[in-house]
């Protein structure tokens, strides 16, 4: 009896097995095994921050097309090191970059110039009459960046201003590409002094549009050494590769647009994030 059983199952197995073996032989597909292995090394969040459709696609691009291995931001230094070891190349690690919205003009500081009626999306709002905020550079607060963020690190405050929570940011850079007003920048995580304004308008115009705008007074540039803050027309720009003593610069800004983000803004409240998503 046991013999029958074994024979029967074994026989069926044998027939099926040989059929499969034949199929595998005639229908074989050649695949670079490294693609799969590299995909396993990647974090697998499929955020698309590297510019490819998911981790698998990026791994393919690295293995087959020789694309650089530094594009995976969420993976951080660890993934980079693993990838470098796997691909046999030198890794150069940098500091973690986090996104920051360079605008401090919330609804108390920067008034609106008309009633916008339409889709609640920054790109759409920006295209209608140039955006409803009087300041044509400021954050519109229609949460396009927050929707683009794969990890919910961007909060739209009650006063219609986008704020990045650096501790949640995975440096994918999606928000940077989404913002129609190009207000979001990637900066080293350890830096705490930022010019929270992106308005290139002249002082008087800025003053009319926002209470915390950069009026181009140049005072800050004189507080720092080695061109750590430079002027782009009427806008002060922090050069993040040069050191700044944040505590000394921030209080000197007459427009109150240089802020010291140390300590960083309070962590996101759970409920708040849910409401925005």
């Amino acid at each position: 009896m046991i013999l029958y059983t074994t024979l029967a199952i074994g026989g069926i197995g044998l027939i099926c097995g040989s059929a499969l073996a034949l199929a595998a032989r005639f229908l074989a597909v050649h695949e670079d095994p490294r693609v799969e292995e590299l995909t396993a090394i990647l974090p697998g969040v499929n955020c698309g921050g590297c510019g490819y459709a998911g981790c698998g696609d990026y791994a393919k691009a690295v293995v087959l097309d020789g694309i650089e291995i530094t594009l995976c931001a969420p993976g951080g230094a660890e993934t980079l090191a693993n990838m470098a070891a796997f691909m046999g190349v030198e890794a150069e690690s940098g500091e973690k970059q986090v996104a920051i919205v360079l605008c401090g003009g919330d609804s108390d500081q920067a008034p609106r110039q008309f009633q916008y009626n339409g889709v609640a999306d920054c790109t759409a709002a920006h295209a209608v009459g140039g955006g409803d905020k009087k300041c044509r550079y400021g954050c519109l607060g229609y949460s396009s960046c927050a929707r683009a963020c794969p990890v919910g690190a961007i909060e739209i405050t009650e006063k219609n201003l986008a704020v990045v929570h650096p501790e949640l940011c995975i440096s994918c850079g999606k928000c940077v590409r989404t913002c129609p007003r190009h207000l979001i920048k990637m900066v080293p995580e350890s830096r705490h002094a930022h010019v929270m304004c992106s308005s290139k308008d002249k002082g008087p115009i800025v003053k009319k549009a926002c209470k915390v705008g950069c009026i181009g007074c140049r005072i800050c540039t004189k507080q720092v050494e080695d061109d750590a803050i430079t002027m782009d027309g009427f806008l002060a720009i922090v050069n993040y590769d040069k050191p700044i003593e944040s505590a000394t610069v921030a209080p000197k800004c007459p427009g109150k647009c240089i802020v010291d983000t140390d300590p960083p803004p309070a962590p996101v409240e759970e409920e708040k994030v849910e409401a925005e998503v």
């Binding site: 339409g118 889709v119 999306d121 790109t123 759409a124 295209a127």
Partner: peptide
């Protein structure tokens, strides 16, 4: 519904 705005959005995208 803001249909035209939707279309504009998609076209721009």
């Amino acid at each position: 519904r803001p249909l035209v705005q939707h279309m504009k959005q998609a076209k721009a995208g």
